[in-house]
Design a protein around this nucleic acid. Sequence first.
DNA 1: AATCGTCATGTAAACGTTTACATTTTAGCT
DNA 2: AGCTAAAATGTAAACGTTTACATGACGATT
Lengths: 350, 350
Amino acid sequence: MTDIRSSIIDVAKKAGVSIATVSRVLNESDKVKPETREIVLAVINEMKYAPSPAARGLIMRKTEAIGLLLPDLHGEFFSEIIRGADATIQHQGYHLIVSSSHNDPKEIEAALRFMRGRVDGLVVMSPQVESELLLDTLPKSLPVVLLNCHINNPHFDTIVTDGFGGARDMVSYLFSLGHTRIAVVKGGENNIESQERLRGYRSAFATHGVPLNKAYEFDGDFTEASGFEAAREILELEERPSAIFTFNDSMAIGAIGAIRDAGLRIPNDISVCGFDDIPVAKYLSPSLTSVHVPIHELGAMAISRVFDRLHKRTKGDAAHIFVPTTLSIRNSCKKLNGKSTQEKEMIILR
Amino acid sequence: MTDIRSSIIDVAKKAGVSIATVSRVLNESDKVKPETREIVLAVINEMKYAPSPAARGLIMRKTEAIGLLLPDLHGEFFSEIIRGADATIQHQGYHLIVSSSHNDPKEIEAALRFMRGRVDGLVVMSPQVESELLLDTLPKSLPVVLLNCHINNPHFDTIVTDGFGGARDMVSYLFSLGHTRIAVVKGGENNIESQERLRGYRSAFATHGVPLNKAYEFDGDFTEASGFEAAREILELEERPSAIFTFNDSMAIGAIGAIRDAGLRIPNDISVCGFDDIPVAKYLSPSLTSVHVPIHELGAMAISRVFDRLHKRTKGDAAHIFVPTTLSIRNSCKKLNGKSTQEKEMIILR
DNA sequence: AATCGTCATGTAAACGTTTACATTTTAGCT
DNA sequence: AGCTAAAATGTAAACGTTTACATGACGATT
């Protein structure tokens, strides 16, 4: 058990050198005699001394931490982002600080305030965040990468996944299977990602000349429970849809539970597909068809981008990376009568 | 966009007061005239000044952060721990710093070193951690709560879930359904939680006088993929077990995928049960029977404990909390012929 | 012996904030 | 107006580290 009160002054005294020499030893300067180094290291070990991050941070102006601000921490989607970020940060001399804003503007601000001064770079994934808040709260010199924030500001590097295209393609795929009555479970009024996906859903209807049915649009909040509830309502419709498309896999999983409880079979009685393609999707019964988002890679990409800025590998104008989505076709969607297999393959290869 | 270089000195100069007055305004001292306060706050807002956490930490010796060190970050189990911790820390004037040790001793040490000086309290969930490392690395004054670490040291508060009892009861429940050929997917050689659960599994066999079959013990690593692989091997056994018990739900989900791919039905052809009762378990088809661990509450409890120490609400001897597990009986386990329903109810109500 | 250059080490200031104690200002009373 | 006490504000030191520049020691050369 070490005592927080031992400082570099105590170590220097005990080793019989100056505090500068102790600092040099700690920071691996070559301006120290090997014999002196040995002595100092022995004292450091004996006293179990560790430098104060606050003092170091104050003088060096770096914290050796990278912040990751997420809208929520629930489930595999976010744990995959974190894992990608974490894997990328490994062995880079930095640590990851994860925080959640609970999708609340006040809490976004509080989290940003906390991060400021505590991180050397920041990844923000928050559909609700506005560039003004970021500009007001964060120092100009802090590398910031926005992930699915839909902010177009020349100051920030952004990475955005193609929610519109993914949803459009999934609905097109369902059309190719013969489905025209397709219910959708959305992700919330203020959620820009949900809005993009809804736009894709509607776009596919327009493109294929299939009439839209507003009664097939249901509210959810990206949780399993909200997907369960929405599916229960969907199953009670007079004219039941032949497929349910949820805007994330967690809601698809909840919908699967409701369908199971209603004694219906997937995909025989009703097809289900989701968005994100979280790792669990492939193990479900049946395996879930989902818009594939390279989640782990998103986290990795964002952190890489921060490092590029931090290590001056990238300067100048902000980069805007658009990450395409693909379809992971599995077994949760049934082909209805009347469509050919060729159409299915055409969509996948797009 | 704020400039990192504006300091309390700049604010004081612009407001025409001393730095102590600015500090008093920032820290809501009542020793400031309202008129003076207004002036200073206006300047602070205009300059978008925020205090340096490093400087504050250096003088106040607190960071306003609580650390949570997990063995891994994958999936709903850990995201539920984080969520419980996060919910408990809300509005307490602290933020959560999450880190992962990847179950590697070197990385445990690195993470502890990073946390030291950056957190005011710490929750450690790491089966592999040893008390000597904690004692060597962390200051005596830092509140530390160990979660499922199986360390018995008078210095640390501990919270331990009943892995032994949960596994024993699950196996007993399977016996009550008539299963005697029960395969188990373990969680890794060095994992103490897996060892406790294995001990419970074996204990139930001994208690019920059912012969143990070492060929039914399979290695996994708590991931879906390892559960998938283990189940594939299990399904190829000459004398196939009638039930698979995995030491966490992620492996159960993987096993479900392998069973599905083999064209078998759960529970008609083979029963499956897991451990932890992560949120997704109840939505699976069929819903998964699992040893219920109050995951979210664990995270909450651990943080509460840290706060108790931090706010001096608890002093003296370390507390050791033992958290019982219960069974969440759902639909993934079939009753074989020959056992009564009364035995089933008796086990649940224990 | 004196001088010069290199290496190793030490001294002092800086970083940005908080706060104990000193000083000034203000309000109320005589 | 003068005095007193309380309120408000200011000064200076502290916190623990890093590092620019100063200093001292040593070896080589003339």
